[in-house]
Design a binder for these strands. Structure first.
Ligand SMILES: [Mn+2]
Ligand SMILES: [Mn+2]
Ligand SMILES: [Zn+2]
Ligand SMILES: [Zn+2]
Lengths: 137, 137
DNA sequence: TTTATAAACGCAACTCAGTTGCAAATATAT
DNA sequence: ATATATTTGCAACTGAGTTGCGTTTATAAA
Protein backbone atom coordinates (compact mmCIF):
# COMPACT_ATOMS: atom_id res chain seq x y z
CA UNK A 1 0.00 0.00 0.00
CA UNK A 2 1.61 3.26 -1.14
CA UNK A 3 1.94 6.07 1.39
CA UNK A 4 -0.94 8.58 1.35
CA UNK A 5 1.50 11.40 0.64
CA UNK A 6 2.83 9.64 -2.43
CA UNK A 7 -0.66 9.08 -3.76
CA UNK A 8 -1.64 12.74 -3.56
CA UNK A 9 1.67 13.73 -5.13
CA UNK A 10 1.17 11.30 -7.98
CA UNK A 11 -2.18 12.85 -8.87
CA UNK A 12 -1.11 16.49 -8.42
CA UNK A 13 -3.42 16.89 -5.44
CA UNK A 14 -2.32 19.17 -2.64
CA UNK A 15 -1.24 17.44 0.56
CA UNK A 16 -3.66 19.07 2.97
CA UNK A 17 -4.24 17.61 6.41
CA UNK A 18 -7.78 16.70 5.51
CA UNK A 19 -6.98 14.92 2.25
CA UNK A 20 -4.08 13.03 3.79
CA UNK A 21 -6.36 11.87 6.55
CA UNK A 22 -9.03 10.94 4.01
CA UNK A 23 -6.69 8.76 1.97
CA UNK A 24 -5.51 7.04 5.12
CA UNK A 25 -9.07 6.50 6.26
CA UNK A 26 -9.91 4.75 2.99
CA UNK A 27 -6.73 2.66 3.22
CA UNK A 28 -7.59 1.49 6.70
CA UNK A 29 -11.26 0.76 5.97
CA UNK A 30 -12.28 -2.81 5.31
CA UNK A 31 -15.54 -1.61 3.79
CA UNK A 32 -16.66 1.45 1.88
CA UNK A 33 -17.59 4.93 3.10
CA UNK A 34 -20.29 7.55 2.61
CA UNK A 35 -19.70 11.28 3.05
CA UNK A 36 -21.45 11.15 6.39
CA UNK A 37 -19.49 8.16 7.65
CA UNK A 38 -16.31 10.02 6.74
CA UNK A 39 -17.42 13.08 8.70
CA UNK A 40 -17.98 10.89 11.73
CA UNK A 41 -14.69 9.01 11.56
CA UNK A 42 -12.32 11.78 10.65
CA UNK A 43 -10.53 14.01 13.21
CA UNK A 44 -10.64 17.16 11.11
CA UNK A 45 -13.87 19.14 11.37
CA UNK A 46 -14.34 20.08 7.76
CA UNK A 47 -17.49 21.25 6.10
CA UNK A 48 -19.46 18.56 4.30
CA UNK A 49 -18.92 20.34 1.00
CA UNK A 50 -15.18 19.84 1.43
CA UNK A 51 -15.75 16.14 1.84
CA UNK A 52 -17.94 15.94 -1.25
CA UNK A 53 -15.43 17.84 -3.35
CA UNK A 54 -12.54 15.67 -2.20
CA UNK A 55 -14.50 12.54 -3.05
CA UNK A 56 -15.33 13.86 -6.51
CA UNK A 57 -11.67 14.73 -7.10
CA UNK A 58 -10.47 11.34 -5.84
CA UNK A 59 -12.94 9.50 -8.04
CA UNK A 60 -11.87 11.42 -11.14
CA UNK A 61 -8.25 10.51 -10.45
CA UNK A 62 -9.22 6.85 -10.04
CA UNK A 63 -8.16 6.73 -6.43
CA UNK A 64 -11.61 5.62 -5.27
CA UNK A 65 -14.67 4.15 -7.01
CA UNK A 66 -18.39 4.25 -6.37
CA UNK A 67 -19.99 1.17 -4.88
CA UNK A 68 -23.69 0.32 -4.49
CA UNK A 69 -25.46 1.28 -1.28
CA UNK A 70 -28.45 -0.21 0.50
CA UNK A 71 -30.21 3.19 0.70
CA UNK A 72 -29.03 4.67 -2.58
CA UNK A 73 -26.44 6.87 -0.93
CA UNK A 74 -23.22 7.76 -2.74
CA UNK A 75 -20.62 5.39 -1.33
CA UNK A 76 -16.95 4.91 -2.19
CA UNK A 77 -14.17 2.38 -1.78
CA UNK A 78 -10.46 2.44 -2.54
CA UNK A 79 -9.41 1.40 -6.05
CA UNK A 80 -6.97 -1.41 -6.59
CA UNK A 81 -3.75 -1.15 -8.55
CA UNK A 82 -5.48 -2.14 -11.79
CA UNK A 83 -6.92 1.36 -12.08
CA UNK A 84 -4.56 3.76 -13.80
CA UNK A 85 -4.73 7.54 -13.38
CA UNK A 86 -7.36 8.02 -16.05
CA UNK A 87 -9.49 4.88 -16.21
CA UNK A 88 -11.25 2.74 -13.67
CA UNK A 89 -10.80 -0.96 -14.29
CA UNK A 90 -12.71 -3.21 -11.93
CA UNK A 91 -13.65 -6.83 -12.22
CA UNK A 92 -15.03 -7.62 -8.79
CA UNK A 93 -18.44 -8.00 -7.18
CA UNK A 94 -19.89 -5.98 -4.32
CA UNK A 95 -21.64 -7.20 -1.22
CA UNK A 96 -24.26 -5.28 0.75
CA UNK A 97 -24.87 -6.42 4.32
CA UNK A 98 -28.55 -6.17 5.16
CA UNK A 99 -27.78 -5.99 8.86
CA UNK A 100 -25.02 -3.38 9.24
CA UNK A 101 -25.69 -1.78 5.82
CA UNK A 102 -22.00 -1.76 4.89
CA UNK A 103 -20.87 -2.43 1.33
CA UNK A 104 -17.77 -4.54 0.66
CA UNK A 105 -15.67 -5.08 -2.45
CA UNK A 106 -15.35 -8.83 -3.06
CA UNK A 107 -12.24 -9.40 -5.12
CA UNK A 108 -12.75 -13.15 -4.87
CA UNK A 109 -15.85 -12.98 -7.04
CA UNK A 110 -15.23 -11.90 -10.61
CA UNK A 111 -17.88 -10.54 -12.94
CA UNK A 112 -19.59 -12.97 -15.32
CA UNK A 113 -19.12 -12.38 -19.03
CA UNK A 114 -22.50 -11.27 -20.42
CA UNK A 115 -23.16 -11.00 -24.13
CA UNK A 116 -25.30 -8.40 -25.91
CA UNK A 117 -28.96 -9.39 -26.19
CA UNK A 118 -31.69 -8.28 -28.58
CA UNK A 119 -30.42 -4.80 -29.31
CA UNK A 120 -28.87 -4.04 -25.93
CA UNK A 121 -25.17 -3.18 -26.21
CA UNK A 122 -23.45 -3.97 -22.93
CA UNK A 123 -20.41 -1.89 -21.98
CA UNK A 124 -20.29 -2.51 -18.24
CA UNK A 125 -21.40 -5.23 -15.85
CA UNK A 126 -22.16 -4.98 -12.15
CA UNK A 127 -22.73 -7.85 -9.78
CA UNK A 128 -24.22 -6.96 -6.42
CA UNK A 129 -24.78 -9.52 -3.69
CA UNK A 130 -26.84 -9.11 -0.56
CA UNK A 131 -26.92 -10.97 2.71
CA UNK A 132 -25.01 -10.84 5.97
CA UNK A 133 -21.32 -9.99 6.31
CA UNK A 134 -18.70 -11.86 8.42
CA UNK A 135 -18.98 -9.50 11.42
CA UNK A 136 -22.77 -9.76 11.44
CA UNK A 137 -22.88 -13.55 11.16
CA UNK B 1 -51.90 -9.67 -18.98
CA UNK B 2 -54.68 -9.50 -16.35
CA UNK B 3 -56.99 -6.50 -16.41
CA UNK B 4 -55.96 -3.65 -14.11
CA UNK B 5 -59.29 -3.87 -12.29
CA UNK B 6 -58.74 -7.54 -11.52
CA UNK B 7 -55.30 -6.85 -10.15
CA UNK B 8 -56.44 -4.21 -7.68
CA UNK B 9 -59.34 -6.45 -6.64
CA UNK B 10 -56.99 -9.37 -6.05
CA UNK B 11 -54.88 -7.33 -3.66
CA UNK B 12 -57.78 -5.62 -1.86
CA UNK B 13 -56.75 -2.26 -3.21
CA UNK B 14 -59.51 0.24 -3.99
CA UNK B 15 -60.20 0.81 -7.67
CA UNK B 16 -59.64 4.55 -7.80
CA UNK B 17 -59.15 6.33 -11.12
CA UNK B 18 -55.57 7.09 -10.27
CA UNK B 19 -54.55 3.58 -9.26
CA UNK B 20 -56.27 2.03 -12.26
CA UNK B 21 -54.42 4.41 -14.52
CA UNK B 22 -51.17 3.67 -12.69
CA UNK B 23 -51.48 -0.09 -13.16
CA UNK B 24 -52.26 0.41 -16.84
CA UNK B 25 -49.30 2.74 -17.23
CA UNK B 26 -46.97 0.10 -15.83
CA UNK B 27 -48.53 -2.55 -18.06
CA UNK B 28 -47.99 -0.46 -21.17
CA UNK B 29 -44.42 0.59 -20.30
CA UNK B 30 -41.54 -1.22 -21.95
CA UNK B 31 -39.17 0.14 -19.35
CA UNK B 32 -39.42 1.14 -15.71
CA UNK B 33 -40.76 4.32 -14.11
CA UNK B 34 -39.81 6.83 -11.42
CA UNK B 35 -42.37 8.83 -9.43
CA UNK B 36 -41.60 11.87 -11.52
CA UNK B 37 -41.94 10.04 -14.84
CA UNK B 38 -45.32 8.77 -13.67
CA UNK B 39 -46.46 12.30 -12.84
CA UNK B 40 -45.54 13.40 -16.35
CA UNK B 41 -47.20 10.52 -18.18
CA UNK B 42 -50.39 10.19 -16.23
CA UNK B 43 -53.59 12.11 -16.99
CA UNK B 44 -54.69 12.53 -13.39
CA UNK B 45 -53.13 15.46 -11.58
CA UNK B 46 -52.48 13.87 -8.24
CA UNK B 47 -50.12 15.07 -5.58
CA UNK B 48 -46.69 13.48 -5.62
CA UNK B 49 -47.32 12.00 -2.19
CA UNK B 50 -50.21 10.02 -3.65
CA UNK B 51 -47.88 8.59 -6.26
CA UNK B 52 -45.27 7.63 -3.67
CA UNK B 53 -47.87 5.96 -1.47
CA UNK B 54 -49.36 4.01 -4.35
CA UNK B 55 -45.90 2.80 -5.35
CA UNK B 56 -45.16 1.69 -1.81
CA UNK B 57 -48.47 -0.16 -1.63
CA UNK B 58 -47.97 -1.81 -5.03
CA UNK B 59 -44.48 -2.94 -4.09
CA UNK B 60 -45.66 -4.48 -0.84
CA UNK B 61 -48.30 -6.45 -2.72
CA UNK B 62 -45.67 -7.66 -5.22
CA UNK B 63 -47.30 -5.92 -8.12
CA UNK B 64 -44.15 -3.94 -8.93
CA UNK B 65 -40.48 -4.27 -7.97
CA UNK B 66 -37.62 -1.83 -7.54
CA UNK B 67 -35.02 -1.68 -10.27
CA UNK B 68 -31.64 0.06 -10.28
CA UNK B 69 -31.42 3.62 -11.57
CA UNK B 70 -28.57 5.54 -13.15
CA UNK B 71 -28.96 8.45 -10.69
CA UNK B 72 -29.96 6.50 -7.61
CA UNK B 73 -33.64 7.41 -7.93
CA UNK B 74 -36.32 4.99 -6.76
CA UNK B 75 -37.53 3.27 -9.91
CA UNK B 76 -40.10 0.50 -10.41
CA UNK B 77 -41.13 -2.05 -13.00
CA UNK B 78 -44.02 -4.49 -13.21
CA UNK B 79 -43.56 -7.90 -11.62
CA UNK B 80 -43.94 -11.08 -13.61
CA UNK B 81 -46.25 -13.93 -12.76
CA UNK B 82 -43.61 -15.69 -10.65
CA UNK B 83 -44.21 -13.21 -7.84
CA UNK B 84 -47.00 -14.26 -5.53
CA UNK B 85 -48.95 -11.85 -3.33
CA UNK B 86 -46.46 -11.95 -0.49
CA UNK B 87 -43.02 -12.62 -1.95
CA UNK B 88 -41.04 -11.19 -4.82
CA UNK B 89 -39.31 -13.85 -6.89
CA UNK B 90 -37.11 -12.51 -9.68
CA UNK B 91 -34.36 -14.16 -11.62
CA UNK B 92 -33.59 -11.63 -14.32
CA UNK B 93 -30.95 -8.99 -14.97
CA UNK B 94 -31.47 -5.24 -15.38
CA UNK B 95 -30.10 -2.95 -18.03
CA UNK B 96 -29.41 0.76 -17.59
CA UNK B 97 -29.09 2.81 -20.78
CA UNK B 98 -26.38 5.42 -20.39
CA UNK B 99 -27.94 7.55 -23.12
CA UNK B 100 -31.67 7.75 -22.30
CA UNK B 101 -31.20 6.74 -18.64
CA UNK B 102 -34.02 4.19 -18.78
CA UNK B 103 -33.80 0.90 -16.91
CA UNK B 104 -35.09 -2.32 -18.50
CA UNK B 105 -35.84 -5.76 -17.09
CA UNK B 106 -33.97 -8.34 -19.17
CA UNK B 107 -35.76 -11.65 -18.76
CA UNK B 108 -33.41 -13.26 -21.29
CA UNK B 109 -30.48 -12.92 -18.91
CA UNK B 110 -30.76 -15.01 -15.76
CA UNK B 111 -28.79 -14.42 -12.60
CA UNK B 112 -25.58 -16.38 -12.07
CA UNK B 113 -25.44 -18.74 -9.11
CA UNK B 114 -22.95 -17.26 -6.63
CA UNK B 115 -21.71 -19.20 -3.62
CA UNK B 116 -20.93 -17.84 -0.17
CA UNK B 117 -17.33 -16.63 0.19
CA UNK B 118 -15.14 -16.16 3.25
CA UNK B 119 -17.86 -15.44 5.76
CA UNK B 120 -20.29 -13.60 3.49
CA UNK B 121 -23.71 -15.29 3.43
CA UNK B 122 -25.44 -14.46 0.16
CA UNK B 123 -29.23 -14.31 0.16
CA UNK B 124 -29.84 -12.26 -2.97
CA UNK B 125 -28.05 -11.58 -6.23
CA UNK B 126 -28.39 -8.62 -8.56
CA UNK B 127 -26.92 -8.33 -12.03
CA UNK B 128 -26.94 -4.86 -13.53
CA UNK B 129 -25.74 -4.17 -17.05
CA UNK B 130 -24.97 -0.80 -18.59
CA UNK B 131 -24.65 0.37 -22.15
CA UNK B 132 -27.02 1.57 -24.84
CA UNK B 133 -30.56 0.31 -25.38
CA UNK B 134 -32.19 -0.69 -28.69
CA UNK B 135 -33.88 2.70 -29.25
CA UNK B 136 -30.64 4.56 -28.58
CA UNK B 137 -28.49 2.40 -30.83
C1' DT C 1 12.43 34.69 1.64
C1' DT C 2 9.06 36.91 -0.78
C1' DT C 3 5.56 36.65 -4.30
C1' DA C 4 2.38 34.66 -7.52
C1' DT C 5 -0.90 31.10 -8.72
C1' DA C 6 -3.99 27.51 -8.70
C1' DA C 7 -6.03 24.36 -5.65
C1' DA C 8 -8.55 23.71 -1.60
C1' DC C 9 -11.66 25.38 1.77
C1' DG C 10 -15.82 27.30 4.44
C1' DC C 11 -20.02 29.50 4.66
C1' DA C 12 -24.51 30.16 3.15
C1' DA C 13 -28.01 29.39 0.38
C1' DC C 14 -30.10 26.29 -2.55
C1' DT C 15 -32.24 22.01 -5.08
C1' DC C 16 -34.78 18.09 -5.21
C1' DA C 17 -36.37 13.34 -3.98
C1' DG C 18 -38.75 11.40 -0.73
C1' DT C 19 -41.34 11.44 3.98
C1' DT C 20 -44.72 12.50 7.73
C1' DG C 21 -48.93 14.26 10.08
C1' DC C 22 -53.44 15.21 9.77
C1' DA C 23 -57.83 16.23 8.12
C1' DA C 24 -61.03 15.49 4.17
C1' DA C 25 -62.80 12.58 0.57
C1' DT C 26 -64.26 8.24 -1.38
C1' DA C 27 -64.69 3.27 -2.42
C1' DT C 28 -66.97 -0.57 -0.78
C1' DA C 29 -69.32 -3.67 2.30
C1' DT C 30 -73.30 -4.06 5.48
C1' DA D 1 -78.46 4.90 3.94
C1' DT D 2 -74.59 4.04 7.12
C1' DA D 3 -70.30 2.63 8.75
C1' DT D 4 -65.40 1.73 8.05
C1' DA D 5 -61.03 1.39 6.22
C1' DT D 6 -58.52 3.08 2.45
C1' DT D 7 -57.04 6.66 -0.30
C1' DT D 8 -56.08 11.38 -1.17
C1' DG D 9 -54.34 16.33 -0.77
C1' DC D 10 -52.13 19.90 1.50
C1' DA D 11 -48.44 21.61 3.97
C1' DA D 12 -44.53 21.26 6.24
C1' DC D 13 -40.46 18.81 6.80
C1' DT D 14 -35.93 15.96 6.15
C1' DG D 15 -31.57 15.02 4.51
C1' DA D 16 -28.24 14.17 0.72
C1' DG D 17 -25.95 16.46 -2.37
C1' DT D 18 -24.86 20.95 -5.15
C1' DT D 19 -23.54 25.76 -6.36
C1' DG D 20 -21.64 30.44 -5.88
C1' DC D 21 -18.34 33.15 -4.07
C1' DG D 22 -14.95 35.08 -1.34
C1' DT D 23 -10.93 33.56 1.57
C1' DT D 24 -7.16 30.65 2.84
C1' DT D 25 -3.32 27.72 1.92
C1' DA D 26 0.02 24.61 -0.45
C1' DT D 27 3.48 24.88 -3.69
C1' DA D 28 6.52 26.56 -6.98
C1' DA D 29 8.80 30.41 -9.24
C1' DA D 30 11.28 34.67 -8.69
MN1 LIG E 1 -15.32 -2.20 -5.43
MN1 LIG F 1 -36.98 -6.32 -13.14
ZN1 LIG G 1 -22.78 -6.56 8.31
ZN1 LIG H 1 -31.64 4.28 -24.24
Amino acid sequence: MPKAEKILEKFNLKKTNFRLELVELFQSSSSSLTADEIRQKINSTNDKVTIYRALTAFEKKCLIHRVPDKSNLIRYALCQKECNQTHHKHNHAHFICNICAKTFCIEDIKLPQINNTSGFKISKTQLTLEGSCPSCN
